[in-house]
């Protein structure tokens, strides 16, 4: 099988939520000596990002998105094992993510979490309405690489700035990368408050997180 065919079929298994075929394909790619990192990034990950986009257009629904992330996890587990020779719990990085204080909107954040998990990123989801102090405490505790915050209200958006301010005030800003999201957030907002990344949707959140971790 050519590498292009592997990529195409990998994407297809994700779009069709076909776990058996995905696992077989992962095994076959390894047996044929292809680079597992490439198979993940141009094959399966590409597929899941496509799913994320289709979801964003109302063309696939949450249960399918979740199922396809399960398929993804199964395939990636096999490929990851080959990358790090046996150590299956090696993560590409750790992210602490929360919906900011005063805000209970967590549907979008949940989708971001599901997709991040498919990419071998360890995710600590702190839920919704979480104070800046608690977020920072958790990030320190788990030695997070990235802190991600979601805000859906124009009134709670300020908490994303507060996080940047608190990190700076406490001399912690260099220890973490920060990523912001939610409908009122924009790249301009991220630049203004000094966040390291902004993503418009879950698919982009994955790309940006991997970029922050230097793992694209």
């Amino acid at each position: 099988m050519s590498i292009e065919d592997i990529f195409l079929e990998a994407r297809e298994t994700i779009l069709q939520c076909d776990q058996e075929r995905a696992v077989r394909l992962a095994e076959r790619a390894l047996a044929e000596g292809y680079d597992p990192v490439e198979v993940i990034s141009s094959g399966f990950s590409y597929g899941i990002r496509q799913m994320g986009e289709l979801f964003g257009r109302g063309e696939v629904f949450l249960p399918q998105l979740i199922m396809s992330s399960e398929v993804m996890k199964a395939a990636v587990q096999i490929l990851d094992a080959a990358i790090i020779q046996g150590e299956t719990t090696q993560y590409k990085g750790t992210i602490v993510i929360a919906t900011v204080e005063g805000d209970v909107h967590d549907i979008g954040k949940g989708i971001v979490v599901s997709l991040l998990k498919t990419q071998g990123i360890q995710v600590y989801d702190m839920g919704r309405d979480v104070s800046t102090v608690k977020i920072i405490e958790k990030a320190l505790e788990v030695k997070a690489d990235i802190i991600g915050t979601s805000a859906l209200l124009t009134t709670t958006l300020m908490s994303q700035k507060k996080l940047e301010d608190e990190l700076r005030k406490n001399g912690l800003r260099d220890q973490f990368k920060t990523m912001v999201g939610g409908a009122p957030a924009t790249q301009r907002w991220a630049d203004r408050i000094g966040a390291d990344a902004y993503a418009e949707d879950a698919a982009e959140a994955v790309t940006k997180a991997l970029l922050l971790l230097n793992r694209t």
């Binding site: 257009r57 109302g58 063309e59 696939v60 629904f61 949450l62 249960p63 399918q64 549907i107």
Partner: peptide, 20 residues
């Protein structure tokens, strides 16, 4: 568009998820 949290719900023969 209607967010498909369930995905298989119909009204008047139409799938609700994804309707614009």
């Amino acid at each position: 568009f209607i967010l498909g949290m369930h995905g298989d719900l119909f009204f008047d023969g139409k799938r609700l998820a994804g309707l614009y």
